[in-house]
Simulated scan of single mutants.
Amino acid sequence: MPQRTATIASRVGLHARPAAIFAEAAGELRCEVTIAHAGEPADEAMDAASILSLMSLGASHGDVVILRAEGEGADQALDTLVKILETDHDAK
């Protein structure tokens, strides 16, 4: 199963607007994607397309997360999602 590491770039962490942008992108994919804090067991990973899961993850600015995907286009999907997480969506 492909996986990628990403560092949360948004100043407010993965909350509100950044979480909505990420969940929408993950929900449009043909593969299933999970997200977890780095170092957590894979079986504790959450559904990356669920805004509620993302909010409960509590990922803050600078936190490192692991994305895992399974299914069609998994590698490309992960690359796209990493870019979203490593962009500060709160920059003005």
Rank of each mutant, 00 (worst) to 15 (best):
D75K: 08
K92N: 11
A38Y: 03
D75L: 08
S10R: 05
D47V: 04
I8L: 07
G27K: 08
A16F: 13
E86N: 11
A74K: 05
G71W: 11
T5R: 09
L67H: 03
R30E: 14
P18I: 07
P18L: 11
F22V: 01
E28L: 11
Q3H: 09
E86D: 11
A6F: 01
R11C: 12
L14E: 00
E72H: 13
C31L: 14
A16E: 13
V82A: 06
R68V: 05
T80A: 14
R30G: 14
A74G: 09
A25T: 07
A59T: 00
H15P: 07
H37Q: 15
H89D: 06
G39N: 12
R4C: 06
D75T: 13
G27C: 07
K83T: 10
A36Y: 02
I51E: 03
D75E: 15
A69I: 08
I51A: 07
E24R: 14
L52E: 10
L52C: 01
A74D: 13
A91I: 13
K92C: 02
A9S: 09
A77E: 00
D79P: 07
S56E: 12
P41C: 08
E24C: 04
E86L: 09
A91P: 07
E28G: 06
T87Y: 06
V12W: 04
R17Y: 15
A20Y: 05
A36Q: 04
G73C: 14
G58A: 06
S60P: 04
L85M: 07
V33L: 03
E24S: 09
P18K: 07
D43N: 03
R4M: 05
A25H: 07
G39P: 06
A69P: 03
V33M: 08
S50Y: 07
Q3R: 11
V33N: 05
L14M: 10
L52N: 12
V12C: 13
I84E: 00
A6Y: 00
I66V: 15
L52A: 10
E86Q: 15
A36L: 03
A77W: 01
V12A: 14
I51P: 00
F22I: 02
R4G: 06
A74F: 03
R30F: 04
T7Q: 00
Q76E: 14
E40R: 09
A74I: 05
A69D: 08
V65Y: 01
A42P: 01
G39H: 12
P2N: 02
A59F: 00
H89R: 11
M46K: 12
K83I: 08
L85F: 04
G13L: 09
E86A: 10
P18Y: 07
D79C: 08
K83P: 00
D47E: 08
Q3C: 06
T34F: 08
L67P: 03
L85G: 00
T80D: 14
A74E: 11
D88I: 15
H15A: 14
Q76Y: 06
G58N: 04
E70I: 10
D75Q: 13
A26N: 04
T7D: 01
Q3F: 10
D63A: 13
I21M: 10
V33P: 00
R11K: 13
D63H: 09
H15Y: 13
L54F: 10
L81T: 01
K92Q: 13
V64N: 10
P18W: 03
Q76K: 14
S53Y: 04
A91R: 15
A42K: 06
P41I: 05
H89G: 10
A25K: 12
